[in-house]
Write a protein that binds this DNA or RNA. Structure first.
Lengths: 344, 344
DNA sequence: ATGAAAGCGCTAACAA
DNA sequence: TTGTTAGCGCTTTCAT
């Protein structure tokens, strides 16, 4: 592969002249430039990225990490991220951390090794360990969860949606219909996201004066299969069964729906159900699924904008962003006439 | 940021010793290695990728380009690609070419500039221009369409599914139910993918001795919105209307379904419908959508395997791969009792 | 307007 | 086992 030296030699000019001509920075006589450009084409020249990066210290890449590549939610986020990043010429490196701390650490390490100029990180569990590493990083980072270190002075930024409030809204939506036996399928309580959403459930019940009932609560993993298993377990293991169930995301709600089908429990005739994420799929399932919109694309867009701001060396302090969740009510959660009268 | 020189200096050894100790290649006394590793940690050292790349000429990245980031089909492919690439330590750069030749050329240029070691490219239209550029590339490339240059000796490989046969199977599925008025919503005929699938439609009709009828055929763009518009146009503009419609992908079928809803045409009671891609959504829509499975994940996995094979410098000639499409019949395409008797 | 030369941080062939 | 040295291909300062 030809280098600027080959071009320089062929034309009897110096490599620096070639560099200037091709990059457009610095002086170069128009005629010389033309000859250089022509020679570059003849030699099938293409600038070498690694050499350029080594010199300029920028990679033009952004790392985007998600905890579960199978969840369409993140692809909605990608739309937004890409919309913003593309015009700036940033490339997107996509990485699946599989909700494993080790993989998240690997992602952080990639940044230390300058694979990318910045990172947008989604995690179910921002904790002391990954946050500590993140704060040691020089490259800008934007998270999609709220996190404030006790010590303060965090180096990263975040854009977040109050999922706690979102789940609380779901519970309110149920109680406002007179429902009192409300179940919940969430994530692991050891994880930040799991705690947040569970807290919304707890608050919602409390607000309505309803007790927590372990029989109606399951911990799962945000996957369809996990929701299915949790659904079976909950439907089999609770007497009386709940009248309504809030799932901490749509994927688990789909799985729960599958469990209901299997158990011949009709939604919403026998049981009300709601999810969270508002995947585009949810408007088309049967029954159409009530869900809390987290505005995935907007999160992505906002996160990318914050990141670009920081990567461009603009060091004016920026505010962390806060998006409001929005309950989208569809068939699955609305009590039909004759609700609860099981057909036989 | 610390370099191996900083470590070398601190310890009074040479940079190459540090390099050997850290990379594990070449001799290094165990004790020296330990001291070096400790010093590296103390100095918060991380190897610089661009320097390593410049020297080793490998980027450990693979470029994956898709013509429409909004289509979940490609995310199924990503699962497969990532499954294969991840164990080898390859990172995935995702790029949306927006079905524009210019963007495809940009992707090819990225490879020339060594942004990545190889590429998996999805395009609706492999044509002389992009193929010509692809053949000039040194880096390995795997396409997801069949393409054989007239001149032969193509440098790239491909894994393909016979979508022509897939659409033909859909038409057969319709005709086997006695349906004779069969419509089609496809891609642009100027594009390779559009031609292929249309050809399947044409052959299917021909096989059943049915004539082509322009009233029942629409060109669109593989998006939901495109399918919706094509649906409205077809439903409004054909007298008599078709009894069944084959859509060239699921996204357009969803759009078509939306158009049907709007026009109060019931599927499958008034009209049969089928798509192609077999997105996971299709098993959950209402009605559940019949679709041709293209095995997205398997395409991804296979393509990635071929690419890895080539990137590892294994130059034994490899066969292009061929996956068979599979019709998955669901509610939307099965003639119910009383089909065609419009309710009023 | 152009050229010479240094250097980005790493690897690897060769010498010691 | 370790050190010396020469690049990888580009940018950029400084001199001409």
């Amino acid at each position: 592969m030809a280098t600027i030296y080959d071009i320089a030699e062929k034309l009897g000019v110096s490599p620096s002249t070639v560099s200037r001509a091709l990059s457009g920075r610095g002086y170069c006589k128009e005629e010389t430039r033309k000859r250089i450009i022509q020679a570059a084409e003849e030699l099938d020249y293409a600038p070498d990225q690694s050499a350029k990066m080594l010199k300029t210290r920028v990679s033009n890449k952004v790392l985007f990490t998600v905890p579960d590549m199978c969840n369409p939610f993140y692809f909605d986020m990608i739309q937004g991220i890409n919309d913003v990043l593309d015009p700036y010429g940033y490339l997107l490196i996509l990485m699946d951390t599989k909700n494993r701390l080790e993989e998240e650490k690997r992602a952080i390490q990639l940044l230390r090794e300058k694979y990318a100029d910045g990172m947008i990180m989604v995690s179910f569990d921002f904790c002391e360990e990954n946050i500590g590493l993140l704060n040691r990083l020089h490259a800008p980072v934007v998270l999609t969860n709220q996190y404030v270190s006790p010590a303060g002075k965090d180096r990263f930024h975040y854009v977040w949606v109050d999922t706690q409030l979102g789940i609380k809204d779901v519970v309110r939506h149920f109680t406002s219909q007179g429902i009192r036996r409300i179940g919940y399928v969430g994530g692991r309580l050891q994880e930040q996201t799991g705690r947040e959403r569970y807290e919304g459930y707890r608050e919602g019940l409390q607000e309505a004066g309803l007790p927590l009932c372990a029989d109606w609560i399951r911990e799962s993993d945000y996957t369809e299969q996990g929701g299915y298993l949790a659904g079976l377990s909950l439907l089999n293991g609770s007497h009386p069964p709940p009248e309504a169930v809030a799932c901490a995301n749509d994927l688990m709600a789909y799985g729960f729906l599958r469990a209901c089908e299997e158990k011949r429990i009709r939604v919403p005739e026998d049981l009300l159900l709601a999810g969270m994420d508002n995947l585009s799929l949810s408007a088309r399932t049967s029954p159409k699924l009530t869900s809390v919109s987290l505005r995935a694309e907007e999160i992505g867009r906002t996160a990318a904008q914050m990141l670009v701001h920081r990567m461009n060396g603009d060091n004016r302090p920026i505010e962390n962003e806060h998006l409001r969740p929005k309950l989208v009510v569809r068939e699955s959660s609305v009590k039909p006439a004759g609700f609860g009268k099981r057909e036989t």
